[in-house]
Every structure is written in structure tokens, then in C-alpha cells.
Amino acid sequence: MHNKLMVPVVAAFALMAVPAMAKDRVGYQAIAAGSLTQAEQTIDAERAIFPDRPELMLNLAAVYARTGRDAQARALYSDVLARDAVAMDLADGSVQSSHALAQKGLMRLSSTMASR
């Protein structure tokens, strides 16, 4: 089973393609709109039910990274890497492993810290 992953140009990782009228349960629409507080609330609510879903961990890590909480983002990316890899469908039609996406997130955090 593949998880849907949308990667808007402005967000590091925003997951799950959903119709415009559907409830955004993974924070994608909020992240894409720049509503990071709303995205975090949505993701936190879903993680209370599904704490191990990699798309939720990756999206929350992206929110943390974009709001300067690098240690929390790093911890979530590490959590994804500690679990079995899951194939994720990207918005462009390609498929990537949850591990590859977590590693990219960690690399972004490292490059951001190096430029500070």
C-alpha cells in the first residue's frame, strides 16, 4: 500500500493528496497554505489516533523545521528511519521511500544549521 505524498514547492514535506472538499487529516492543505499552526493541530490530532503513520511524522517534522524546532524535527525524522520503510506516492507521480524522505529532511536540517 502506498501513502500519498504531496511536495509543494514551499514545503519540505506535505503529505497526502486530498480533494479540495475533503477533510485535511495530514496537514497538507494547511502546510501548503502556510498555516503551520493549523497544520500542527491537525497532525497532532491524527497522531493521537495513528501515532506511527510516517506521513504524519514527516509532515510534523516539516512543520517543526519550518518553525525553528530543529531538534524536534530531527527526532521525528529519526523515528521514521527507525521503522520499516513505506513506499510513498509523490505528487509528481514518483514513488519514494519514507526513509529517503526522512533522510532528505535530515540533510535539509543539517544544511540549514551549517548556514546559520
Rank of each mutant, 00 (worst) to 15 (best):
H2A: 09
M6H: 11
V7P: 05
V9N: 11
V9F: 05
A12R: 14
A12L: 13
L15A: 12
L15H: 03
A17R: 09
V18W: 00
P19L: 01
M21R: 11
M21W: 10
M21N: 12
K23D: 13
R25M: 13
V26D: 13
Y28L: 14
Y28T: 14
Q29F: 12
I31R: 05
S35V: 00
L36A: 02
T37S: 11
Q38T: 15
A39I: 07
E40P: 04
I43E: 07
I43V: 14
I43Y: 06
D44S: 13
A48M: 10
I49Q: 15
I49C: 04
F50Y: 14
P51S: 06
D52L: 06
P54L: 02
L56F: 01
M57E: 05
N59D: 10
L60Q: 09
A65E: 14
A65H: 14
R66G: 13
G68W: 01
G68Q: 03
G68T: 06
D70T: 15
A71R: 10
Q72E: 15
A73C: 03
L76S: 04
L76G: 09
L81A: 07
A87P: 14
D92A: 06
D92K: 09
Q96H: 12
S97W: 04
H99Q: 09
L101F: 10
K104M: 15
G105Q: 09
G105C: 08
G105N: 08
R108G: 08
R108M: 11
L109K: 03
S110Q: 11
S111H: 04
S115H: 03
R116T: 01
